[in-house]
Structure formats: structure tokens, C-alpha cells
């Protein structure tokens, strides 16, 4: 994976170097924040899974007790009341309400059970006999359903957290293994490219100054040669100094104009 990160398509300029450095800093901060979020969620997640396990065990027990109390009912009533109950069910008395809980920015819904007052579909059930058992059975089942609702909210939280943790971990990994290496690569690339430019510039300057030095040296040598020649001529033929002087000065004037101009008094 890390081999294929590449780099971003930017021009290697100082400005984009600054941008990339900022980006890297941002990515590192984001990474550490997400990591912490993921840890907090995972902690919560483990807590929830443990509670789910417990609640499932508890549910097994509670449902057993409830089933037993229903058996008591059918014994007391002396017949099947299932049909009667199914037919008389009209309005839910036992309802749930969803609330939200915030765990590091993730909204987890929790169900809360409540009973709708004034609704009773089974007022006449067990009127003949077994009314007391039915009453007890209802209470038992109501408690059992409360356990079930609790379990349901744990389970919902479990599913949502599972999903969220996956997403967060994916982001953490993406930042850690793709974005940060790529930004680092880009910074490296920009740096090397800038260094290269620096070297090129330095070399160019060196070349230019070398050329200038060579030119100056050549000019110096020429002047020197001219002077020597003049000295020799003067030494050999001192009678006509003016003509040679004119000649030399003409020669020099073509080379280095400014310095020698004052000597042109002869004209």
C-alpha cells in the first residue's frame, strides 16, 4: 500500500511547500483526534457488548418465568385464551419512546418504555375465572418486555456503534497510510526540486562570474601586452614617442575607454 501513495500534483514552489506543510500538520492533528474518538467509541462498544451478553442471559430467565406464569393462566382459566386476547388487542398500552444519547459525537438512540394510560384492551379477559392469574401474568410479561426493550436499545446501539467505529477506523487508516505519506512525499519532492533549482542557480552564477573573470583577465593581458610593446618600442626608438603614444592610446581606447580618456590631450 505504502508503495503506491505517490504524491500530489503540485508545482514545486515555496508557496505550495508551505501549503503542504500546513496540510501535514492538519492531517496529524486530525489523525490524533480521530484515533482518540475511535478509542472512546471502542471502549463504549466493549461495554455495550458485555451488557448485551448479560442482558441476553437475563432475557432467557425472564422469559422462562413469564412463560410459566402464562401456563398458570391457562390452567386457571381452564382453556385457551390466546384467541380471545388476539382479537381484543386494539390499542398498544405498552409503547416505547426513543431518546438520544451522545457518545463522542455519535448519537445513539435508546428506547424507553412507557405505558399509555387509559388503554386497557383486556378488561374483560378472565372475568369468569383466573382474573388474578391474568393480572399477575400481565405484570410479569410487562417486566419481561421492559427487559426486552432494554436489550433492544443495547442492540441498536451495538449496530450503530459497530458501523461508526468501522467508518472512523477507516478514516484513521486512510490518514495514517495514505494522506500523511503522500503529503510527506510531496514535501520531499518539493524540497528536492527547490534544492535542484538552487544548485542550478548557483552553478549559473558561478559560470557567469567565471566568464566575467576570464574576460577581465583577457583584457588585462591585452593591456599589459600593449604596454610592454609600447615600452619596448620606446626603448628601441625613443625619438618618436608621440606617434607610438598615439597608437597605443588608440589601441587602449578601444579596449577600456573610460580610464584612458584623460590622456588624449594630444588631440
Amino acid at each position: 500500500m505504502s508503495g503506491a501513495v505517490g504524491r500530489e500534483a503540485v508545482f514545486p514552489t515555496r508557496q505550495s511547500l508551505g501549503l503542504m506543510k500546513n496540510k501535514l500538520k492538519g492531517a496529524e492533528i486530525g489523525h490524533s483526534l480521530l484515533k482518540r474518538k475511535s478509542e472512546a467509541l471502542t471502549k463504549r462498544f466493549r461495554d455495550i457488548t458485555r451488557r448485551i451478553d448479560e442482558a441476553k442471559q437475563k432475557m432467557g430467565r425472564v422469559m422462562q418465568i413469564a412463560a410459566f406464569s402464562l401456563a398458570e393462566v391457562s390452567y386457571a382459566v381452564g382453556g385457551d385464551i390466546g384467541y380471545q386476547i388476539q382479537e381484543s388487542a386494539k390499542q398498544a398500552r405498552f409503547r416505547v419512546r426513543a431518546k438520544q444519547e451522545n457518545v463522542s459525537g455519535v448519537l445513539l438512540p435508546t428506547f424507553e418504555s412507557y405505558t399509555q394510560e387509559g388503554v386497557n384492551d383486556f378488561g374483560l379477559t378472565g372475568l369468569g375465572k383466573g382474573g388474578q392469574q391474568i393480572q399477575r401474568c400481565r405484570e410479569t410479561y410487562a417486566r419481561a418486555v421492559e427487559t426486552l426493550v432494554e436489550l433492544a436499545s443495547l442492540q441498536t446501539a451495538f449496530l450503530i456503534l459497530d458501523e461508526v467505529i468501522k467508518v472512523v477506523n477507516r478514516r484513521v487508516n486512510a490518514i495514517e497510510h495514505v494522506i500523511i505519506p503522500r503529503t510527506e512525499n510531496t514535501i520531499k519532492y518539493i524540497n528536492s526540486e527547490l534544492d535542484e533549482l538552487d544548485r542550478e542557480e548557483f552553478y549559473r552564477l558561478k559560470k557567469v562570474s567565471g566568464k566575467k573573470q576570464r574576460d577581465v583577465a583577457a583584457a588585462d593581458a591585452e593591456i599589459l601586452a600593449a604596454r610592454q610593446k609600447k615600452a619596448e618600442e620606446q626603448a628601441a626608438n625613443p625619438k618618436v614617442p608621440d606617434a607610438t603614444a598615439i597608437f597605443v592610446q588608440e589601441e587602449e581606447a578601444t579596449d577600456v575607454l573610460g580610464e584612458q580618456e584623460d590622456n588624449d590631450v594630444i588631440f
Binding site: 386476547i85 386494539k90 390499542q91 398500552r93 409503547r95 438520544q100 401474568c137 400481565r138 418486555v145 426486552l148
Partner: peptide
Amino acid sequence: AATYKERQFLAVIGDEDSVTGLLLAGIGHV
């Protein structure tokens, strides 16, 4: 919030005894 604010009922798919018991608890709604 909209996806679950409306949700207030429980539903059952079960054998007769389970359904009867849960209906007795008052979850039945038509």
C-alpha cells in the same frame, strides 16, 4: 431523528403462547 421518532410500537412474530403473553403485557396494536 425522523427515522425513529415515529417508532413507538413493538411487533411480535411468535408462537401462540409468546404472542399471547406479550399481548397481555399490552404491546398489541391494530
